[in-house]
Simulated scan of single mutants.
Amino acid sequence: MHLLGRHRTTVVGGAMAFAVLTPAAIVPATSAHAATTITVAADGSGNYTTVQTALAAASSGTVINIKPGTYHGQVSISSGKSGITLQGTTGNSADIVITGSTPASTAGTAGSATVLNSAKDTTVKGLTIANTYAAHDSQALALYAGGDRQVYRNVRLLGYQDTFLSWGGTGSSQVRQYVYKSYIEGAVDFIYGNGALVIDSTTIRSLDRGSTNNGYITAAATNAANPYGILITRSTLTSSAAARTVALGRCWHAGGAADAIGQVLVRDSTLGGHIRQAGAWQDMGGFSWRTCRFSEYGNSGAGASTGTGDRPQLSSATAANYTAQRYLAGSDGWNPVQ
């Protein structure tokens, strides 16, 4: 992973004017504030045939409905397009697929992302985002979430290495994202970054690499100034990989930064037998996992801690301060939690 030098062992004043309105000039107040809605359909039955052309035409607050189909090519939501909603029209996320196959080895981290979402207050729901790069020798992002207060509901995020990146800002500028009732798939560091990211009521599937080391679910680089990093809650961790061959995460000091001390909590979730007992948390780039803030609370399933491995557990009193709402509140009290 190359982001920030990530190391592998393998970002009219004046006078007031008055006007008299005739009845014909009076517009209902609601119409002045109604969101613009446009439709994307690959078969030409909508306003646009690609998601990117629809985004180019959209303004802040536009709702973009996407009809069933496979949409090839990368999509970028710029920071100036705040409040955009992208939504599939069927409610089945498998019906609408945005897909690319670009690796970071040729395009860089952001350039590899099938969807690069840099805008704040966006909502994405009812669709699939995939990066199908098959060589498995490079990071290849499905989603780069780089804006604050982003919500993802009923989405499928499919990749192999570095599927989902939450990245941007430290301290009070840290970005926040909420993922709910979704599906995330990958093998190596496939949920990672320095944002405040809550993954709630979601299936997280580790791919089988056919190895005694079947990868790592998370790689957090949370800045020391931020108490909250990645929270996985009320979710299911699953895999067809061999028992005790998948780590919950490893410690990413992005660019070798000493103050990138990742924070990950897995709580109130069901863990499959693929999760390691010993070695559930792993070192990375010469840094011990103990330099990061890794813990669990209230998990169940065959992969939950048996007390025989090195699996730090929160106390009930401490866990009360590590809820989804706390991770996302920031200074403005944002609370999208379902």
Rank of each mutant, 00 (worst) to 15 (best):
G215N: 05
H72C: 05
G147K: 03
D95E: 14
A57K: 09
I217C: 02
L157H: 03
I66M: 07
S315R: 13
G14M: 09
T202L: 05
R234H: 15
A41S: 15
W334I: 10
A54M: 11
G146S: 15
L314C: 02
R156G: 03
N47G: 07
Q87L: 08
Q177N: 12
G215H: 04
I199H: 00
A19W: 08
L271T: 01
I191A: 00
A257F: 07
K181Q: 15
K67R: 15
A140E: 01
L116T: 00
V63N: 14
V264P: 01
Q313V: 09
A257D: 14
F294C: 09
A243Q: 13
S76P: 00
A134Y: 15
L141T: 00
Y192R: 14
A242N: 09
L197Q: 12
L141E: 06
G171A: 11
G262Q: 06
R234M: 07
S182T: 12
G46C: 07
I26W: 10
A104P: 03
A56N: 15
A145Y: 05
I38M: 14
G301S: 14
M1K: 07
G46I: 04
L197K: 00
T128C: 11
I199R: 04
A302Q: 14
R8N: 14
G14A: 13
D137Q: 02
S240Y: 01
T270A: 10
D95Q: 09
T236G: 04
I275R: 04
A140T: 02
G147N: 02
Y48L: 13
G298I: 07
D121S: 11
G249Y: 01
A224D: 14
E185A: 06
G108Y: 01
S316L: 07
V40P: 04
T238P: 02
